[in-house]
Design a protein around this nucleic acid. Structure first.
Length: 1009
RNA sequence: GCCGAGGUGGUGGAAUGGUAGACACGCAAGACUUAAAAUCUUGUGCCAGCAAUGGCGUGAGGGUUCGAGUCCCUCUCUCGGCACCA
């Protein structure tokens, strides 16, 4: 057999696969679908290690799923609009389109060297008019719904790029692309009203629980008090209703009681114990909203008990609508006692079957789960958490929630003394209003002019001018608070106190109403008040005497909730009570209104650049802003000569294009010259991937509802607040206008890591630490690069490239290659070709128990680990098995079945090499798609082989390992103890009788002395 | 300041509350070689010991447990994000 030389072999297979159309996907195929999505790349013209990490490693999963019988769709397109193309065009005097398409061609060629199953036929290129046409279509739909509007807002402005930047594109006060310091400038912008979707974009995933006790049970009996506490310490809301007549229960009454007295929402988990499980099922059946899950502990669906009949049996008709119950829950678990004295395991099993629920049989602390603690119940209750349909990482959910920043509060109206003006102040802490001693307005507010007294005008104007000039950066850097008094006083609507009104730049014009009241329970307010000698009145105390003394003395600022003092009629109330009372009183007096404030702002999509989607509106002098009629879409970008912005957007120079007739009145009109933010392009591309060439509609709705949501979305953690939030917004909008039936587009989101340069710094040309994948491929082959990236560590790892590390997997591949020689039933010929000479069936039975154990353990491990994005341990498992096979081959041969299985398991990782070996080992004379190793089915692992006959039991003395004994699987404590006590080592420790002996079957024996 | 993720050998990293360090890199010794590379074999957490073996060991300190890298509390450091959000 020849040496393993990846270079020529890989090229050869890439060509043959392509010719044979091995990876052509048919989206109308009825096989189970698997839509694999990676964030679409920007066509920079250079495929770097990061692309390999995301696309080549994800290809491993795609190939596995394909072998497992899924119809895998793995499209790749290009995010082709955006500044770099335009900057390149300006710099080199070329057309951004030529630059972009040239780069795409280069990158496609580079992509081919990965040997992946990526589908470029479906991958859209976002600068293609047939794609951005539908950006324009969506924009017009949003315009119709009032979600797109024109607003003048203070925006982040990059003076170098001459464009507006979204908050997400400002990094530490600088433009994310060019690093120029961003300034604040008021600009006319097209905005998308993402704030209308703020509530729906929140991840409401905090579960709450309703626990139903059983016959003769009580909320304070059995495990209920313990379980309630355990859940509450974890921060969950728990309801444990006392069901009517527990000792002579009428199930119908109990069901009615629960429905009337408990709250249910989509995050509720309902638990029922024994008869409570029956009640729980009937409650679920009657619910109008879907709940998160049902946990049934020792349930039954017929009145048949092992011990004796129960009085409730005849009060209930024992009919369930299981279909209805199933449709009202996302998932269900039934937990049974393996030797319950009342409810037979068969009954529990039956309940599980009719509900399609997971069945867990355990040994509870006390028979029929009546112990004070039943940890298994808690465990199952919490395990339901992870079975949510939409599986996005917790940090993303929390990050997006924080960014949306919902805060519920009130807007309070302060009358200005001797004036008709009113100052509106947003607060979430109306309980501290009584103690308000000043008001602060953001300097930019127009209101400032109206209330400033004449003697203060000079100072106020001077401060305002200074504040406006300050860039965002300076404002943030300068933590020292500044401000000036306006001379005006406002009247506290709660107690009539007159308090001074100041302006200060720590009040942000963009947040809330741009004004706040200051009191003794906010660090910033206290800092400001102390600096300017403004009085403070502490009104909230904790109950801790020492601490309260400090708070009253203003030595400590208490910002939490507590009890009110010095607050008139509210004194003595808790903060929560006081909040409620103050809001009620003020709303009644029309001095306040309840208000929900969001940190999230509307999305400004206007860009004063050329290389983007033209915004499809026409400005008519008579009719105003008129959308371009659908039939006239797309509005195609015109060719222009000069792409550099010169105080006005480059498109303004395309006069022939700009000057149009108004679609309404046919009068002279001008086109909008701004283009769209490229985040619009990437907000819905994954839907168009399914049907990219459709000229009649945005996509075929049926096809998309069959293929989306995607199974897995791989992307960068940096897109948590930008891209993924925007795309969730777009999909929800498309859902609302009836284009798609779902409102989340990705079932699972996983972040990829970042490969740093060997020096630990981010790879960049200026650092000179770039590891070029092409060079690595040249040296070690694509298979080794793929596998090394998979092997590095967890997939979201941020770690440097280790130049010698790749040798490890290269070595692995080489050993797989050379093992071919050692396969029984093959003969090497002089030319380096092998021939199969033995019927493979005849050898199968020659596999020893250990051989089968290793084989099946590896089949299981690799399949499971790759599916759950743990490529590194999957590779490790393959290496372990290879080590086993090598040891075996050292003095003898390995069997054909083993080698063939090994090739199948390695195939997703190293597609080229395994294909070569597969073809050789089958002596195929010419390649045919059906013969490909990649068309073979994934081996099926069989449980029977991975059950070991003998196991090693660890023997411990006081928890320290002292001895190992080998016993038959399933050996009981008596047998193991006997063996352990026979050991000399153990005898040395075991002088007297142990106090206690712990036995974990199949695992360990622990003598406590 | 707030939110999130973490801290395990020389390195990347494994470990459903049950033998910590799988797998790999690196390193060391040996084999092959005139030599080197490649390859193969063996060893490799730290301390003591020729060894058998013993002690210590998952950022620090406490706790729960027969048993803790894993669960709980306090602290500390690193990374990521947000940041004067009323």
């Amino acid at each position: 057999m020849s040496k393993y030389i990846p270079k020529s072999l890989e090229k050869n297979w890439q060509k043959k696969w392509h010719e044979a159309g091995l990876y052509k996907v048919d989206l109308t195929d009825s096989k189970k679908k698997y839509y694999l999505l990676v964030e679409l790349p920007y066509p920079s013209g250079d495929l770097h290690m990061g692309h390999w990490f995301t696309f080549a490693v994800t290809d491993i999963l795609g190939r596995l799923k394909r072998m497992q019988g899924y119809n895998v769709f793995f499209p790749v397109g290009f995010d082709a609009f955006g500044l770099p193309a335009e900057n390149a065009a300006i710099k080199r005097g070329i057309n951004p389109r030529d630059w972009t398409y040239g780069n795409i061609e280069t990158m496609k060629k580079q992509f081919a060297t990965m040997g992946g199953m990526h589908d470029f036929e479906h991958g859209v290129i976002t600068c293609d008019p047939e794609y951005y046409r539908w950006n324009q279509w969506i924009f017009i739909k949003m315009l119709e719904k009032g979600l797109a509007y024109r607003g003048k807002i203070l925006s982040n402005w990059c003076p170098k790029d001459q464009t507006v930047l979204a908050n997400e594109n400002v990094e530490a006060g600088r433009c994310w692309r060019c690093g120029t310091e961003v300034v604040q400038k008021e600009v006319d912008q097209w905005m998308l009203k993402i704030t209308d979707y703020a509530d729906r974009l929140l991840w409401e995933d905090k579960q709450n629980f309703v626990l139903l006790h059983g016959f003769t049970g009580r909320p304070d009996k059995n495990f209920f008090p313990w379980l309630k506490e355990a859940l509450e310490t974890k921060g969950y809301r728990v309801q444990v209703p006392a069901l009517p007549d527990p000792d002579d229960a009428d199930p119908m009454e109990q069901i009615k009681y629960v429905l009337e007295n408990c709250d249910f929402d989509q995050n509720t988990v309902l638990l029922g114990h024994s008869l409570g499980a029956v009640v729980a099922m009937k409650v679920t059946e009657a619910l109008k909203t879907k709940i998160a899950g049902l946990v049934l502990v020792a349930p039954f669906i017929e009145p048949k008990f092992r011990d004796h009949p129960r009085p409730f049996e005849k009060k209930f008709n024992w009919e369930f609508d299981f279909k209805k119950i199933k449709s009202n829950i996302s998932s269900a678990i039934t937990v049974g006692d393996i030797d319950d004295s009342a409810v037979a395991p068969a009954h529990v099993k039956k309940a599980a079957e009719v509900l399609g629920a997971e069945l867990v049989m355990v040994k509870p602390n006390i028979d029929h789960f009546t112990g004070h603690q039943e940890p298994e119940v808690l465990k199952q209750l919490l395990s339901l958490n992870k079975t949510s349909q939409i599986d996005w990482p917790q940090p993303v959910r929390e990050g997006q929630n924080n960014w949306i920043g919902k805060s519920e509060g009130v807007i309070i109206k302060f009358k200005v003394k001797d004036s008709s003006e009113v100052i509106e102040v947003f607060t979430t802490r109306p309980d501290t209003l009584w103690g308000a001693t000043f008001i602060v307005l953001a300097p930019e507010l127009d209101l400032v002019f109206k209330i400033t007294t004449s003697d203060k005008t000079k100072e106020v104007t001077a401060y305002q001018e200074k504040a406006v000039k300050k860039s965002e950066m300076e404002r943030k850097e300068n933590k020292e608070k500044t401000g000036v008094f306006t001379g005006a006083y406002a009247i506290n609507p709660l107690n009539g106190n007159e308090i001074p009104v100041w302006i200060a730049d720590y009040a942000l014009a963009q947040y809330g109403t741009g004004s706040l009241f200051g009191d003794a329970h906010d660090d910033r307010d206290v800092e400001f008040a102390k600096k300017y000698g403004i009085a403070l009145t502490p009104t909230v105390i904790t109950g801790d005497v020492e601490r309260d003394a400090r708070i009253k003395n203003k030595e400590e600022v208490f910002t939490g909730y507590g009890t009110l003092i010095e607050s008139g009629k509210y004194t003595g109330m808790s903060s929560v009570e006081a909040k409620r009372a103050v809001i009620a009183d003020l709303v009644h007096a029309k001095s306040a209104e309840v208000f929900v404030n969001y940190h999230l702002h509307d999305w400004s999509i206007s860009r004063q650049r050329y290389w983007g989607t033209p915004i499809p509106v026409i400005h008519c002098q008579k009719c105003g802003t008129v959308p371009v009629p659908e039939k006239d879409l797309p509005v195609v970008l015109p060719e222009i000569k000069d792409y550099s912005p010169q105080g006005k957007p480059p498109l303004a120079a395309a006069e022939e294009w700009v000057n149009v007739k108004c679609p309404n009145c046919a009068g002279d009109a001008k086109r909008e010259v701004d283009t769209m933010d490229t985040f619009v392009d990437s907000a819905w591309y994954f839907l168009r991937y399914v049907d990219p060439k459709n000229e009649r509609e945005i996509f075929n709705k049926q096809l998309v509802s069959r293929w989306a949501p995607v199974e897995l979305y791989i992307g960068g953690a940096e897109h948590t607040l930008g891209h993924t939030l925007y795309s969730r917004f777009f999909v929800k909008f498309l859902h609302d206008i009836g284009v798609v039936p779902f409102d989340e587009y990705a079932k699972k989101r996983v972040h990829h890591g970042v490969i740093l340069g060997p020096d630990g710094a981010r790879m960049s040309k200026s650092h000179g630490n770039v590891v070029n994948p092409d060079e690595q491929v040249d040296q070690f082959g694509a298979d080794a690069v793929r596998m090394y990236l998979a092997f590095l560590g967890p997939y979201d790892l941020v770690a440097p490239w280790n130049p010698t590390g790749i040798r490890g997997v290269y070595h692995f591949l080489q050993r797989v290659w050379e093992l071919n020689e050692k396969v029984d039933g093959y003969q090497s010929t002089v030319e380096g070709k092998s021939k199969k000479t033995v019927n493979r069936k005849s050898i199968t039975h020659n596999l020893s128990a250990a051989d089968l154990f290793w084989m099946h353990k590896t089949i299981k491990k690799v399949g499971e680990d790759v599916s759950s994005i743990k490529y590194n341990t999957a590779v490790a498992a393959l290496m372990e098995w290879l080590n086993y096979l090598s040891r075996k081959a050292h003095g003898g041969k390995i069997l054909h079945d083993e080698y063939e299985t090994l090739l199948l398991l390695v195939a997703p990782f190293a597609p080229h090499m395994t294909e070569e070996l597969w073809q050789k080992s089958h002596s195929f004379t010419h390649f045919d798609a059906e013969n490909s190793v990649h068309k073979q089915a994934w081996p099926v692992f069989q449980e029977q082989y991975i059950k070991e006959e003998k196991v090693i039991i660890v023997v411990q003395i006081n928890g320290k390992v002292r001895e190992n004994v080998e016993v038959e699987t399933g050996a009981d404590q008596v047998a193991v103890e006997k063996l352990a006590r026979a050991s000399e080592k153990i005898q040395n420790y075991l002088t007297g009788e142990p106090k206690k002996v712990i036995f974990v079957p199949g695992k360990l024996l622990n003598f406590v002395i």
